[in-house]
Design a protein around this nucleic acid. Sequence first.
RNA 1: GCGCCUGUCGUCAAGCGGUUAAGACCUCGGAUUGUGGUUCCGAUAUGCAUGGGUUCGAAUCCCAUCAGGCGCCCCA
Length: 412
Amino acid sequence: MAKIINVIKGTKDILPQDIEQWHRLEEKALEVFSKYGYKEIRTPIFEATELFARGVGDTTDIVNKEMYTFEKSERSLTLRPENTAGVVRSYIENGMSRLSAPVKLWYKGPMFRYERPQAGRQRQFHQVGVEMFGIKQPTADAEVILLAVNYLKSLGLNDLEVEINSLGCPKCREEYKRKIKEVLKPEFENLCEDCQNRYEKNPLRLLDCKVESCKAIFEKPEIQKVIQSDFICEECAAHYKELKSYLDKLEVPYVENKLLVRGLDYYNRTVFEIKSNNLGSQNAVCGGGRYDSLVRNLGGEDTPAVGWAMGMERLNSLLPEIEPKKLKAYIVSNYPTEAFSLAEEIRSFGFDVEFDLANKKFTKQLEKASKVAEYAVILGEDEIKNNEVSVKNLATSNQVTIKRNELKSHLL
RNA sequence: GCGCCUGUCGUCAAGCGGUUAAGACCUCGGAUUGUGGUUCCGAUAUGCAUGGGUUCGAAUCCCAUCAGGCGCCCCA
C-alpha cells in the first residue's frame, strides 16, 4: 500500500458527525446578527502581507512570528491571521464610507496562525466576527457587546463572563505607558526576560505577566497605585462610563479588568473579552474592542469602528453534542428500479430518504432502516402489484399498508 | 520558540523484556430466503506513530523524527 498522507499539524478535518454543530453556529450567526442589521461579508483568505503588518501592527506576535507568508510573482502574500484588517481593506476599497453610517458587517471563516497547537488552538481555525463602522459613541460598543452576549445565549451559553476595560486614546495611553515605565524603572533588572522586552515594545502588556517574581513586583503598593489609577483622559473616561451605564441598564453582567490588554495594536478605548472556565488555558471565546484609527492607518477616511471575533472551535467545545439527524424514511425493497422511483417521489415531498443500493437481504435492510430512519417504507412484490406501500413506524413498530397516493399525507 | 507528559485495529483500550498482541464498541457475515432495535455464533492488527539502536530476544529499554495533550508566551 502507498504511504498515507496526514493532515498538516495544527489543522483538522471537520467530519460529518460534527458538521451539524458547525451549521448551528453559522445559522444562529446569520439569524442573530441579521436582527441587529449586520450583513455578511466574505473577503479573500490571503491578502498583501503589508495589510497585516500595517493593520494588525508590526509589534504584535501575530505579525512577528505567526504569519503564513509566501511569495508569488514577486508579491508578498499572507494567509489571513484574522479578518478585521481584510474587512477594513474592503470597506475602504469599496467606498463603504459613503454608505449611511453605521455600516455593520459580519464574517465567518478560516484564519491561519503559525503557533504551537494545543487544546483550543490550531494553526487553521475558524472565527465568526462582527465589525461596525462609523459610530464613535459608546452606544456602538454597547450594541456590539450585547450582540456577542445574545449570540452566545442563542447557542445556549449563558454563564460566560464578560470582561471590559478602557485603554484610553493614543494620547492618554502614552502618558500611562510613561508612568508605568517610570515606576518600574528601579525594578527593571528584576523583571523576567519577556517583561524586559515588553518594557520598551509594549509596556501595557507587562501588566498581566504570569511569572511569579513579576507578579510580586506588580503587587508593590506604589506600582499598584499606578496600575489602578484612572489614567484615561476625561473624554475617554466619559465614553467608558457611558458604555458601562448602557450595559448596566441592559443587564449585561460584566466585570472590569484593568489588566485586560488586547494584543493587537489597533485597539483604543473599549476592549473586552468573554471567557469560560471550561476551556483550559485558552479560555477566551470572544475578544474585541474599538479601533478608531485603523481605517485611517490603512488609507481610508478617519472612521471610528468597533468589533469582535469568536473562535468557533472554542465555541463548539462548549456546546453539547447534537444527536445526528435521522432520515424521514428508509425504503426496504429488493426491487431497485421501483425503489429508485419511490425514493424520488418521497424526496419530491421534501423528505430525506435512502434505500439499499447494494440490494441486501430484507432483514438487513430493515435493520439498517431502524438505525438511520424514522419510518421504513416497505415495497415488495405484493405492494408493487397493488400499487401500495407498507409504512412502518420504527419507534412504535406500528405498520400499515396504504395506497401509494396516501403516502405523502401519511408521512406528514 | 521553551518545559513536562503521551502515541497498541475505524474508536476505547489490556499488555510494562520471551504471550499465538486480551477485551469492548463500530463494521461485515450467519442463526433468520418479507419484519428491525434484544439475543447467540463467526470475521477483522504477520502488527504496536515512523526511523535507527541496545539485546539471544523489543509493543515493552535508549535516541531521533513526526503527531497529540498540558503549562509558558500569545490569542479566538
